[in-house]
Structures are given as C-alpha cells and as structure tokens.
Design a protein around this nucleic acid. Structure first.
Length: 587
DNA sequence: TCGTGACGCACC
DNA sequence: AAACGGTGCGTCACGA
C-alpha cells in the first residue's frame, strides 16, 4: 500500500490484493457515510473504448484509491462498498453512479436511494454560474470558495504539470497516465476528501425553504439517469445517408462561394467583404463594429437574387447540421446503435434541465430531417406529450390574474384575446404574450413584430390593462428582487436576480416553476409505472417510446399523469402519437 | 496548442 | 422610462 499526503490529509493507494483488507476495515469504520468518485478514460461511458481506472472512497481526512482497472477483485470491492454504505456522497452523482451501474454491475435505484450529490446541494444554495455572479457548481470552484483558493489552484496545476511531464494533452492524461502515478493518485484521493468536506459545508448553505427540494432533485436526477442509460435508438442507414448528403451539399455550395471570392463561408468578415465588393450595401453592424451578416441579412439578399448570399446560407446550414447533429449521432452511438446523451436535470440558473452530447433539446423542429435519425424501439412508436402553453398557464396561476385564468378555463385563445385588446393581428398578440413572459420591452416587440415603436407601446399597454393581475405580479416580483436580491418560487427555490435587471425576476419565477412542473411530471410518471417508456425531457415536453399496440392508450395515460393543477389552474397536456421515427411528428 | 470572446444559430 | 428569459455548439480570430 502506498500512502500519500496533502497537508494533514492522507491518501492510501491499494496496490495489491493484500491491501484490500485494510480498505475493507476503513469502509466498516465509515459505514455511515463516505464520498465516492471514479477516474475514467473519458466522459462517454458507453463508447467502446471506455475504461474505469480508479474508484475512490473517502471521508474528510482520509481516502482510499482502488485500481479497478487492474482486475475484477478490485471491482468487486468497489461494488460491495457501494452496496454496504448507508450514505454515498458524490459530486455529479449521475456520472459516477452510471459508471458503477454499467461497469461494476451495481443497481442504480439502490444506490440513488442512499446518495447525496454535492452538485445538487450547491445548485440549491446558489443556482448561479460563476459568470452570472455566483460561485459555480464545479468541484474546483466550490473548493476555491468554501475550502481554499490555494488548494483548488494546486490541484488544477498538478494536472497541468502531469500533462507536461507525460508529454501529452490535458484531455489525454486520463487514459495515458500510469495507474500508480503519484500525482494522479493524489488528485484522485483529494477529489473524494474535498467532496466529503464540501458536503458538510454546503448543506448549511441551502436556504431553509429550499431544503424540501433536496429529496425531490435526487429523485429527478435518478429518473434522468435512467433515461441516459436507456439511450435512444438511431437509424444508422438513414443517418449515414444524411451525412453523405450534407457533405455533398456543403462542398457544392462552398465551391460556388469560392468562385464568388469567399474562401471561408463561416467567416462573416470575408462574406461581408465579398458582398461589399459586389456593390451590395450592408446596413447593420455588430456591437464590436463588424458588419452584421446573419441569417436575416442573407435572406433579404436572397430575395434580391444574390447568388453569393444563397451559396453561403446553403453551405453554412449543411455544414452546421452535419457537424453539430448527424456526425455527432454516429460518433456517440454505442455498440447497439443507441445514443446516450447527458441529461443535467438541474442546470440553468432557473433550474431548467440541459441535454448535451448530443444537444437533443435543440434539434431543428422546423423540418423533420434531423429528428428522423431517432427511432422508437423495435415494435414501438414515438410519443410526445407537451404542456399546452405551459409558461403562460404558470403565469396565470402565479399571478392569479382573472382574465388569464378564465381564458385557460374556457380553453379560449389567449393570443387572440391579447390581439383583440390591442387591435392587432393574432401573431402580434402572441408575440406580446411571450415577450411579457420574457420581460421584453417595446423596442423588442417593435423589431420582432415589425411594427412601429408607438404601436408596440400601445400593444404592451393594452396587455397590462387587460391582465392587470399580471402587471401587479411582475411589480411584486421585481420589488422583491430589488429588496432582497432574490425571489423564491412556490416550490421553495431561491433565485438570485441581478440588481440592475430586476425586470427578469418574473421570467425567472415563471421559467423555474414551469421546470418544476415538468420535473414533477417525471416523478409522477415513475410512480405510475410509466418511466420505462421515457426518452427525453424537453422543457415543456416529454418524449417517449411505447409499444405500438397500446400507443394511443399509453400516450393518453402519460398525458393524464402529467396534468397538474397549480393554484386552481390546470396545466393541461397534449399527447401525440407519431410513427417509428421521432421526425414523423414534425412532418 | 490551448483557452476565450464574439458571432451566429438551433431549441423551449 | 426602459428593460428579451434560459440553454449548447461550431467556427473564427486572437492572445498566452
């Protein structure tokens, strides 16, 4: 056994099977609670080359590092430990627990019932990222804020030195470093010691009114972890054909652009220069003073028949859709052609979820091509259940505005009501409704709707006159934000608001409460025994794959379970049954 | 060679 | 009086 020290902290590295006895004694002494972490070769648990290298367990003072890469005996000890502990403390539990489930054979549900995630606690304490004036939620940022900036810096620096010493890049260190490298082992051990320490400190930082959310968030995280693990089947043949198609299209339009003097279609500077050389008059500049060459500018030029604008647009879209979507789907699939995205069930400052690798919340919805890459399982169909006007219903519920509430009781057309009140088209009424949820002002409405500033002001005034309760509610939220620096949602979540942007308080509360409605739906669906069908949560929508024979019935059942009542307002759902592919819902 | 800001664009 | 909320990702351009 190798012993390493970092100040008063001790890291013991199990080097031989004989050392496991001491580890087992340590676990018995610390049965009540230990922090757990893994070191792996990469972040994609399901990619063919993925390996788990180390498993670490520790308390605030002492850690044990197990070289699970070296044999099943070490893996067995890690597994038994995870089954034995009364409490497992992690940072970003989903990753390490999915590793344990997939590579140690542990039961996800069993582990999650005993797990506490420092990431979740940190988010409940302050949901802001460091860029938004908060602390952030990463282990390094939390260590710097709550333990010591010096420790955080030293741990980070040690990784850089290690990469240099091994003559490799930071991203490759994790798969290439020798398993018993001192710095690597020290880092691995310190991770759990810091996690255990932060756990105690951050518990105390969660506001009293938010503590009710702790159990809830762990449940939601577990359901999302199940979805990640299940994965989403892709149509490989279709996706490969699409890849070829976009590559060909991209090259063809790039060639056309080249002949018109643009070498790099993604360089807005080059495109602007070429357009000006043609005698085109550009009107708008970006805030850093460069010519603005975005979709709208290019579309306007296309209407005038400008060939370069057409080529640039086509090439950009084909390139982006290939690299950001199609290529990624193929690269990220596992051996069974399933894609396992990462779902962060608690991400945004409003607690909204986010999905990455690939970003399945942001696939094009205007066309079905990209979503057609995803399939329901064999013998199943895609089902999508979304909330009807979720955020506006939540706004009606929280503001208590009688006109808006009644509109939803009557299932009336809220956008038309706003439009009629302002004497404008339904389209503008709809924009005004959404803009109000986003905290937008007259200039935003004016440019978005293509109406004059005066008319935009009148429309917003009409909105405020029609829904007086909403105006009052916005005032209240904004005043609370100014007075305390934060607002609290009905679910008990504290949301800090920038003082100079107090107008965003209403949006934060509405967006966050809406997220909690969808997150509650996941918990309700699991309780109802429907969670095995779930594929993705997309803000106000849940995507599922269900047996074809019972698709109609199951979709209605999912819709029923998801339907909730908030302060007397029904947050109603709209179940849809598609075909075999996800894209079938977008045709 | 890397990290970062700006820009643009995909979604709710 | 005026105030557009929340994400992820690819590329370019630039600087350490």
């Amino acid at each position: 056994m190798k012993t390493l020290r970092y100040g008063p902290k001790t890291i013991r590295v199990v080097e031989k099977e004989n050392d496991l006895k001491a580890f087992a004694d340590f676990v018995r002494r610390n049965r009540r609670s230990l922090a757990f972490d893994t070191e792996t070769t990469g972040l994609n648990i399901y990619s063919p080359g993925f390996r788990v290298r180390l498993a670490q367990f520790g308390n605030e003072h002492e850690a044990y590092v197990l070289p699970v890469e070296l044999g099943p005996r070490y893996v067995w000890y890690a597994k038994r430990t995870l089954e034995f502990l009364e409490e497992i403390v992690c940072h970003n539990a989903t990753f390490d627990l999915l590793v344990a489930a997939e590579h140690f054979g542990c039961d996800l549900e069993d582990m999650y019932s005993r797990v506490r995630d420092v990431y979740i606690l940190a988010h409940l304490a302050d949901s802001r990222d460091s860029k938004e004036g908060g602390i952030g939620h990463g282990l390094e940022a939390l260590t710097a804020a709550y333990i010591s900036p010096k420790v955080a810096e030293e741990v980070k620096a040690s990784m850089r030195t290690m990469a240099k010493e091994l003559k490799t890049t930071l991203s490759r260190v994790w798969s290439e470093v020798p398993i018993f490298h001192d710095t690597y082992n020290l880092y691995a051990g310190m991770d759990v010691i810091l996690t255990a320490t932060l756990y105690r400190i951050i518990w105390a930082k969660v506001p009293a009114e938010s503590q009710i959310l702790i159990g809830f968030e762990h449940r939601v995280a577990k359901i999302c972890a199940d979805m990640e693990r299940r994965g989403f089947l892709i149509d490989v043949e279709y996706t490969e054909n699409l890849q070829k198609h976009y590559l060909e299209e991209q090259e063809r339009h790039e060639q056309a652009a080249l002949e018109m003097g643009v070498e790099n279609i993604n360089s807005t500077d080059q495109v602007a220069a070429a357009l000006i050389a043609q005698g085109v008059k550009l009107n708008e500049k970006t805030k850093t003073g460069r010519w603005k060459v975005d979709k709208k500018v290019l579309e306007d030029l296309e209407k005038e028949g400008n060939e370069l604008a057409i080529a640039v647009q086509r090439a950009k879209r084909a390139g982006k859709w290939r690299t950001a979507y199609v290529d990624q789907f193929l690269a990220l699939r596992d051996g069974n052609n399933r894609v396992h995205c990462s779902i962060n069930s608690l991400k945004a400052r409003t607690a909204r979820m986010s999905i990455t690798n690939p970003a399945l919340q942001t696939l094009p919805a205007s066309e079905s091509v990209i979503r057609k890459c995803f399939l329901a399982d064999d013998g199943e169909l895609i089902v999508s259940v979304d909330y009807k006007a979720q955020e506006l219903r939540v706004l009606a519920a929280l503001s208590g505005d009688p006109v808006m509430r009644q509109a939803f009781v009557d299932d009336a057309d809220l956008h038309q009501i706003t439009a009629d009140a302002a004497g404008v088209d339904r389209k503008v009424g709809k924009m005004a409704n959404f803009l109000n949820v986003y905290g937008g002002g007259p200039s935003a409405l004016s440019s978005q709707a293509g109406i004059s500033l005066d008319v935009a002001k009148k429309v917003l005034k009409a909105f405020n006159d029609t829904y007086k309760g909403v105006s009052k509610f916005s005032q209240l939220m904004s005043n609370q934000a100014k007075r305390h620096g934060y607002v609290t949602t009905p679910t008990g979540r504290r949301l800090y608001v920038d003082r100079e942007r107090s107008y965003s308080a209403t949006n934060y509360v509405i967006q966050s409460t809406s997220r909690d409605v969808t997150a509650s739906a996941l918990v309700l669906l699991e309780k109802a025994g429907l969670s095995q069908y779930l594929r993705l949560p997309i803000h106000d929508e849940i995507v599922a794959s269900v047996p074809a024979g019972d698709a109609e019935e199951i979709s209605r059942e999912i819709g029923r379970v998801m339907t909730q009542t908030l302060r007397g307002v029904e947050i109603a759902t709209d179940p849809e049954v598609g075909g075999r592919s996800w894209g079938s819902l977008y045709e």
